[in-house]
Amino acid sequence: MPTSTPLEQAVRDQLDRYFKDLGGSAPSDMLAMVNLCVERAVLQVALERTDGNQTRAAEMLGITRGTLRKKLHIHQISA
């Protein structure tokens, strides 16, 4: 079994905290929740690292500028 990366370990640590915060309640739609949270953070970081340049951010993310704009709209991120 390959060792986890620091990013994977950070996600695992946060999920452990999430389960503790639930206090025994069952999670719902956990994968969608994590995907949305991670995607939002990645979009924000890409925009920060490119000083808001959407073309460069899209290239950094490996998506088209149109796709980036759709995702920004979904996450209500202004650029």
Rank of each mutant, 00 (worst) to 15 (best):
M1T: 10
M1V: 11
M1D: 10
P2E: 08
T3L: 12
S4N: 14
T5H: 09
P6W: 00
P6Y: 03
L7S: 14
E8G: 14
Q9R: 11
A10C: 04
V11Y: 01
V11M: 07
V11F: 02
R12P: 00
R12I: 13
D13Y: 05
D13H: 14
Q14I: 02
Q14R: 09
Q14F: 04
L15I: 05
L15V: 00
R17V: 03
Y18H: 06
Y18Q: 05
Y18A: 05
Y18K: 03
F19W: 13
K20D: 15
K20T: 15
D21Y: 04
D21L: 12
D21Q: 05
L22I: 04
L22W: 04
G24T: 08
G24F: 08
G24L: 08
G24M: 03
S25T: 15
S25M: 13
A26E: 11
A26M: 12
A26D: 12
P27L: 01
P27I: 01
P27Y: 06
P27Q: 07
S28F: 00
S28G: 03
D29L: 12
M30R: 04
L31K: 08
A32Q: 09
A32L: 15
A32P: 01
M33D: 12
V34F: 08
V34A: 06
V34H: 02
N35W: 07
L36Y: 07
L36N: 10
L36H: 10
L36S: 13
C37R: 11
C37Y: 13
C37P: 02
C37V: 10
V38P: 02
V38F: 12
V38Q: 14
E39L: 08
E39T: 09
E39Q: 14
R40P: 07
R40Q: 15
R40W: 10
A41R: 11
V42S: 12
L43K: 11
L43D: 01
Q44I: 12
A46K: 01
A46E: 03
L47G: 02
L47R: 04
E48A: 15
E48W: 10
R49W: 07
R49A: 15
R49T: 12
R49N: 06
R49Y: 06
R49P: 00
T50S: 08
T50N: 09
T50L: 04
D51K: 15
D51T: 14
G52H: 10
T55E: 10
R56S: 11
A57Q: 04
M60S: 13
M60P: 00
M60E: 08
M60A: 09
M60V: 02
G62M: 01
G62S: 08
G62E: 02
T64N: 08
T64E: 06
R65H: 06
R65N: 09
G66A: 10
G66K: 13
G66E: 06
G66N: 13
T67H: 12
T67M: 15
L68K: 00
L68N: 00
R69T: 13
R69P: 01
R69G: 02
K70M: 11
K71F: 15
K71C: 10
L72R: 06
L72C: 09
H73P: 00
H73N: 05
I74W: 12
H75E: 05
H75V: 05
H75D: 03
I77Y: 09
S78T: 09
S78V: 07
S78W: 04
S78N: 15
A79W: 11
